[in-house]
């Protein structure tokens, strides 16, 4: 059943299917389960961050701090492991700190009525600055547990691989969809983004919801930092520069309205996958240079934003 309110979602998933199909027709070995699964493996951390960003944007805000939060998480994990900690308690510390960081930003945004963009910009400087104060050099991570987790996964037909980061990302996705669409909190986030004033009149606790949204985004950014450290086996203060922009782009391409109040978490997944497919296409082609990725993503952003305008006007 085609429902009009899901229109952007259809467009996004259709675009992904078309791009994947185009690649499969043009290149041998493109249209395989292996390439498809690699989209998840390579972008698991981006999926996680972009899901957090979806909630923030749904609530009518924006979070520019997520890239540096990823870097900060990696650096803290690196330092704690160097000090002889087991990764699991280190992860717990990073997740709690991340959540607190987001909550503080949310509180400043709400109580001082400041623009989310400038507050999270300060947060971005803060997290990036703190990571370089902790360590300017990349800290190598060496631990049996890391090897075990990185190796963990399931072999799928055709040499495809369902790895631990993909499993984490998909778990986050399922939980996020439930949180957004089947809980009271989710409804409040949509309400907040739709019209803050009406939401307040209808009894949405604005303060608590705003703080929770930014706490959730930073929590997921910290989790993404953990997943990111499984790829790089290091913590580096200059890691994940510009990831916040990729995440915002994925959310927009995924059909979420930047003014808030409308959009779907699943759309964001397709947004990330579309960006991944463009990248894969360019690397398969070999003659196209990597900067085309940026230009194509810019074009996609433009098309989707123009489409949003058109939809809203109607």
């Amino acid at each position: 059943m085609l429902h009009k309110k899901f229109l952007p979602l259809y467009v996004t998933s259709l675009l992904f299917a078309l791009l994947f199909l185009a690649g499969s027709i043009q290149f041998e070995n493109f249209g395989t389960l292996r390439v498809f699964m690699n989209l998840f493996t390579d972008n698991a951390f981006l999926i996680i961050v972009a899901i957090g960003m979806t909630f923030v944007i749904l609530s009518g805000g924006i979070d520019l701090s997520v890239g540096s939060t990823i870097a900060l998480s990696g650096v803290i994990i690196g330092v704690l492991l160097e000090a002889g900690w087991h990764p699991l308690p280190a992860f717990a510390v990073v997740l709690v700190l991340g959540t607190l960081f987001g909550a503080v930003m949310g509180a400043i945004i709400h109580y001082y009525q400041l623009q989310p963009f400038i507050v999270t910009l300060a947060g971005m400087f803060f997290a990036r600055g703190l990571s370089s104060v902790i360590s300017e050099e990349s800290i190598p991570i060496m631990h049996e547990f890391y090897d075990d987790v990185a190796m963990f996964g399931f072999e799928l037909p055709g040499g495809a691989w369902l790895g631990s980061s993909t499993i984490i990302a998909l778990t986050v996705l399922v939980l996020a969809v439930m949180l957004a669409n089947f809980t009271r909190f989710g409804g409040r986030v949509y309400g907040l983004g739709g019209d803050t004033h009406s939401a307040a009149l209808m009894g949405v606790p604005i303060a608590r919801t705003t703080i929770a949204v930014y706490a959730l985004s930073s929590f997921l950014a910290a989790l993404a930092g953990i997943v990111f450290s499984f790829y790089t086996f290091s913590g580096y203060s200059l890691a994940a520069v510009g990831v916040e922009l990729d995440a915002i782009a994925a959310v927009v391409i995924g059909g979420t309205l930047l003014t808030g109040g409308y959009g779907y978490v699943v759309g964001t997944l397709f947004g990330v996958l579309i960006m991944g497919v463009v990248q894969t296409y360019i690397s398969f082609d070999g003659t196209l240079s990597s900067w085309w990725t940026k230009i194509v993503i810019g074009l996609l952003l433009f098309i989707f934003i123009a489409m949003q305008r058109f939809l809203v006007r109607r």
Partner: peptide
């Protein structure tokens, strides 16, 4: 003329601009 939020409208060129410069 399109009425797009400034953060978003200029984000497009922020992302694509470096690609164009390299091109």
């Amino acid at each position: 003329y399109f009425g797009i939020q400034p953060i978003v409208a200029t984000l497009i060129l922020m992302v694509a601009g470096r690609g164009i410069a390299q091109l």
